[in-house]
Design a protein around this nucleic acid. Structure first.
Lengths: 333, 333
DNA sequence: ACCGCCCGTGTAATCGATTACCTAAGGCCC
DNA sequence: GGGCCTTAGGTAATCGATTACACGGGCGGT
């Protein structure tokens, strides 16, 4: 594979000139043409590795997420990747499972690779390696999940708007016994969504008692199903259930079907995260939609701000309620 | 950030010695300990970029797939990533959409980054950049989709096994008017699946006439739905439909529901690609399962063979039929 | 006509590792 | 005790770019 020296020789100039022509600094017509001709003839492509070593910029971002197979994160990763690419960056995606150890492992690898910036949608709470990332000076942006002790901007969606719409929707349909299947206690997004929903319901005079809050041990269909089982076994079972994650909603739906209950006749079901195939379920699921692609784009832009040395504020994007048929009312057109 | 020179100074040795200790060549107890102590004190981590420049190995793979949001590819990418990581490689995932131009773009970027090996699950047929990749000597493995003119091993699943099981399954249930919703004509996997299914059916004396083969313009729910519409509008509509991709199956299901038909009573539906949430549909969908994670692992191993200069044969893994309830018979336990 | 400036270009240092080659010292055998 | 082999470790070249600095020539201003 041809290198810059070969090009220089062929064009009869020095490597410095080749570099300058290719980087658009101080060229002049005649020499410039000779260089470009040599580049074309040799099929020369600059060695990105050498450039990265010299300039200390790899034009690569790292993204660590907790579960790539969760469609919400898949779409998020896809959005991040597209925007990064649009701006000339490559993306290394790390799938941390839900284990903090694996996450640290990944951050370690990414720092070793001298990525220009890191985005993390963290599993669990603390992470020693995240502190190290901050200490190393690598620009960091938190995605979807804020972390208390970490000094980095966070890009996420704020559920309040949609949850207020949802409370109104349920109230209007006469559902007065809501329940919530929530992420493991301690997950910031989960707790926040719960509180916002509770406040929104209160505005309609609807209570959300503790026994109708089921905290799943993990964000999985199995967890969601188990929590739904518990809720339906209550002496006074709910007439509407909100699952704060799409996978838990799926498991919850399984349990409802297994008992022969019908949605929405016997129970309303709403999910957080509007993933594409909710529309294909029977009945199509009403859901709180996060602006997933915008989140991805905003994360990349926030990261770029940090890279260029500017302060970047956290970003909070609004959610909206996508009304389908799982609460009983046909969508109004 | 500390570099190898800092470590050498602190340990009172030369950089060569540090490098040798860290790479396990010719160490000796006393010096070795001093070096390791210095490494620990400074929190030194080798600069991967510099090492890559010198050794001409980046320990990075590239994976270009046609649609990251298709759950089959998501899982494939996840499996590849995990196996690559296990072996000490990072993975840059490129999402080509279904556009060949974007795919070429991506391959270009990956080659520029001097990845050690490339895996491609190609959109469309030809791709000039793929030829260039081969020409550049970058080890290449095709994933899921073989490409005629490209001299590279291909790792994929062979549908024959499961399709024969499926034909038997349908025959046993008395379904004698099968139809197929297939990928765009020219897609090698699609054509192959179709032929294998036709042959398997013939073994049971069941015909698959041309009018009951619907080729969707793309692998999308919309395409699947349109094809199902066409099939159901036939003068002699089918009593069983196989969709050769999970997204098309989803769209097909929508159309069935929209018409008020019931599965499996009025129509049997089977999908290729057993993605996790098929089990959560109502009724759970019978599907041809590809050994997705094994495919990912095999791709990485095949690539490594090529990287180490060995010839690597193509890999064909078997599929199997996962019987659920969408053809009429309760699964046998 | 001379001074300085700017423009275009070349020379060489640099980024941070790996590694070929060399040297010095120690051990062993005869 | 001298020659030779082995071992430990240092010196410096190298990977392929970018870029600070230097230099020469043309040109405009006075």
């Amino acid at each position: 594979m041809a290198n810059i020296k070969d090009v220089a020789e062929r064009a009869g100039v020095s490597v410095a000139t080749v570099s300058r022509v290719l980087n658009g600094r101080a060229p002049v017509a005649e020499t410039r043409d000779r260089v470009l001709a040599a580049v074309a003839e040799l099929g020369y492509r600059p060695n990105v590795v050498a450039r990265a070593l010299r300039t200390a910029r790899t034009r690569t971002f790292g993204l660590v997420i907790s579960d790539l197979r969760n469609p919400f994160f898949t779409e998020l990763a896809d959005a991040v990747e597209q925007e990064a690419r649009r701006l000339g960056y490559s993306l290394i995606i790390g799938n941390a499972g839900e284990s903090p150890g694996q996450q640290d492992d990944y951050i370690r690898t990414l720092l070793d690779r001298r990525i220009d910036g890191l985005m993390v949608s963290s599993a669990g709470t603390g992470s020693s390696m995240l502190h190290e990332a901050v200490a190393s000076g690598t620009p960091l942006v938190l995605l979807d999940r804020a972390l208390p002790g970490i000094a980095a901007p966070c890009v996420r969606a704020e559920g309040g708007t949609a949850l207020r719409e949802l409370a109104a929707h349920l109230a209007a349909l006469g559902r007065h016994r809501p329940a919530v299947i929530v992420a493991p206690a301690g997950t910031p997004t989960g707790d926040e969504r719960l509180e916002q929903f509770r406040a929104a319901l209160a505005g309609h005079g609807i209570a959300l008692p503790a026994e109708r809050i089921a905290a799943s041990p993990d964000l999985s269909p199995a967890g969601g199903r188990e929590m739904m089982r518990r809720l339906l076994d209550l002496p006074g079972p709910p007439d509407a259930v909100l699952a704060t994650d799409n996978l838990m909603a799926l498991g919850a739906l399984d349990e409802v079907r297994a008992r022969g209950l019908r949605i929405p006749a016997d129970l309303a079901l709403v999910a957080f995260d509007d993933v594409a195939w909710f529309a294909h379920l029977d009945p199509p699921l009403t859901a709180v939609a996060q602006p997933t692609r915008e989140l991805g784009r905003a994360a990349v832009h926030t990261l770029l701000e940090r890279i260029e040395g500017r302060e970047a504020p956290s970003v909070l994007l609004p959610t909206r309620l996508v009304v389908r048929r799982s609460c009983g009312e046909p969508p109004v057109h």
